[in-house]
Design a protein around this nucleic acid. Structure first.
Lengths: 354, 354
DNA sequence: ACGCGGAGTGAGAGCGCTCCCACAATCTAT
DNA sequence: ATAGATTGTGGGAGCGCTCTCACTCCGCGT
């Protein structure tokens, strides 16, 4: 405790402004908070003084009495590696959140849960110390230690994906992963693919779980049985796609649907290395429509999802929740769009698969 | 002002803990703050009560008196588009910062300056309202409106790149861009390239400025004059590389050094479209060593920089500054490493350029 | 002429914490 | 035994704000 800081220079307070403007602390407070019952003359005088000497209210003091901080938290509890597996997704989501938060004059606090962190400490810092008015939880791993902590907490929370069942009372913004993925697989089936393998995302994550469910449901009623040996566990990373493709090739697939573009790029890496022609021999699809998806060779057929909006809507929902704005629905599903490029073989002359 | 929140349920205070433990507010405070002059018996008793009923100090109240919040800010004042031009860089930097900040029991506040933001409001929210103890400024555009505001502010600031001259009194963590870039160009010269074009980064940014300077200095004394028509203005984006390559090809270059990998990928896109063989006809290099750099075809020769560490060191420096730890140097340059892959032609049989 | 209500303002209390000083109890030196 | 230092503890003050209540001043109706 040997810090000797520069606290000597006391910051300006309401009282100081009041003294200079010839009014009381209370009146200055009213002006600052736009209370209508201040005469326009005093208001002008006070505003002038504030402008002149550059006063800004002390938010800690305000928070102490109002119990609100005008700050929301963003928690990324996934193992950090995953953030880099999806290099576009997180910045975009963060951007969506931040722009709404800025516009509504809040600030954003960011926590990334690292494996080595003591969940209890993190939890205390985030939830208990009353530093934030609400929390956006991004890319939740269902195994995250924070989940049980969250269950009984009295704090506004919005998820950017479907949370595990025990937390479903909270609001969330997501996309219809299962439906979008089903469409992707059906698209391949329509193109004549018969033996479709898949590499999943991190299966502790809702997006990954739902996408696999979509894969499965696409097969229903087609006569093609669900074959677990064609489902390879991945983690959204390029490497996981790469390795899965090696395995799937030995199992004779004619198509590989990857849980996201990043993994699909890994699949392409492997297939090109193995000399398998895409899409002629094996069709490949991704998910997300990363910028890179248009530049791969062949260009990736994928599903575009509105990542920015996913963040923005979550932030909106959270701020409305905090400010007591009623919503008819607390569960938002954003639309997605199938983007057909070369890698699925749709552009091949007729049904030439195989 | 119609929020009806749940503030009725008063949070626990030091006084409450004291009452339950049979001691005073002051003693509890001492225990919480690890003050040695508490008998071990009382300390144990107090800790037990705290544990039992789950008390956490109110940070706003503490901040009000200590003038410190245990929170640092991270400001990304660059036009946001740029964040997505470098999808790996920002998450990695943020990760580096966050892990140090977490480990030292601080929290992170994140602001992204959007073009539409009123710089004054942002400035107030960040600097004036005393919400943070220090600030890391990431990827500063020298044209950012916030700069002049920053000049006279009394707040610990660390930059993750060299700031403009008027802010150089602040600490920063960077890499030796000029030297690394010079090595890259010299490497190409050594391989026999004679007419080397370059696409710059956003020239309001130090990294970009320094890299161009390195390009220029590599040419000094080689007999090859600096030719401004071979220098195309870019902005670190893939598109800017793509367009620059089109121009440079018409000017007959035998090598293109891009300001970063992202732009280099754009260069590769263009050259492959134009049917120019890389590296045989035109060598290409990048900067950053993104994961994608190893996967392009041909794989990119580039410079690896320790992005994570760049963030981590900046955070370290800042926290030390805040806590009054003395440093002999406030300006850190991290080492970089030339990564030679296929795209520069080093693996070509002898000097076969052209 | 009187009271009455509304508009505008000021002052007190208190949010939960830290810091400082006062004090009691114990321990040491003479 | 008594003064002095030492250890542990409690209570007051105050950080800068908001909130509530009380007060003054005015114009109004009767």
């Amino acid at each position: 405790m040997s810090h000797k800081f520069l606290n000597d220079k006391r910051a300006l307070s309401l009282e100081d402004i009041g003294a200079r403007a010839g009014v009381s602390r209370s009146t200055v407070s009213r002006v600052v908070n736009n209370d209508p019952k201040v005469s326009s003359a005093t208001r002008a005088k006070v505003l002038q003084v504030i402008e002149e000497i550059g006063y800004t209210p002390n938010l800690a003091a305000r928070a102490l009495v109002t119990k609100r901080t005008q700050v929301i938290g963003v928690l990324i509890p996934q193992r950090l590696s995953t953030i880099f597996n999806e290099p576009y997704y997180f910045p975009a989501l963060l951007h969506g959140i931040a722009s709404v938060v800025n516009a509504r004059d809040y600030s954003t606090m960011l926590w990334v849960e690292e494996d080595k962190d003591d969940p209890r400490r993190l939890y205390e810092r985030i939830i208990m110390n009353r530093l934030i008015d609400g929390l956006v939880i991004v890319s939740l791993s269902h195994k995250s230690a924070i989940i049980e902590k969250l269950a009984h907490v009295d704090l506004s929370i919005v998820f950017t994906e479907r949370p595990p069942r025990e937390l479903e009372r909270h609001a969330y913004v997501s996309i219809d992963n299962a439906d979008a993925f089903r469409q992707l697989v059906q698209h391949l089936l329509r193109l004549g693919r018969k033996r479709i393998g898949t590499v999943t995302g991190d299966m502790t994550n809702s997006d990954a779980i739902e996408r696999l469910a979509g894969y499965r449901s696409a097969l229903d009623g087609t006569g093609i049985p669900y074959d677990p040996s064609l489902v390879i566990d991945g983690d959204f990373s390029r490497q996981s796609g790469y390795h899965a493709a090696h395995t799937l090739v030995t199992r004779g697939v004619d198509a590989i649907v990857a849980a996201n573009d990043q993994a699909a790029l890994g699949v392409l890496d492997a297939l090109s290395e193995l000399g398998r022609c895409v899409p002629d021999e094996i069709a490949v699809t991704g998910f997300d429509d990363l910028p890179a998806a248009a530049h791969s060779s062949p260009a990736l057929t994928t599903v575009r999802q509105p990542v920015l909006e996913r963040g923005a809507r979550a932030a909106q929902l959270l701020l409305d929740l905090i400010e007591g704005v009623e919503h008819n629905t607390r569960h938002v599903l954003l639309p997605t769009e199938l983007v057909v490029r070369m890698s699925c073989g749709a552009h091949l002359p007729s049904g030439t698969a195989r």
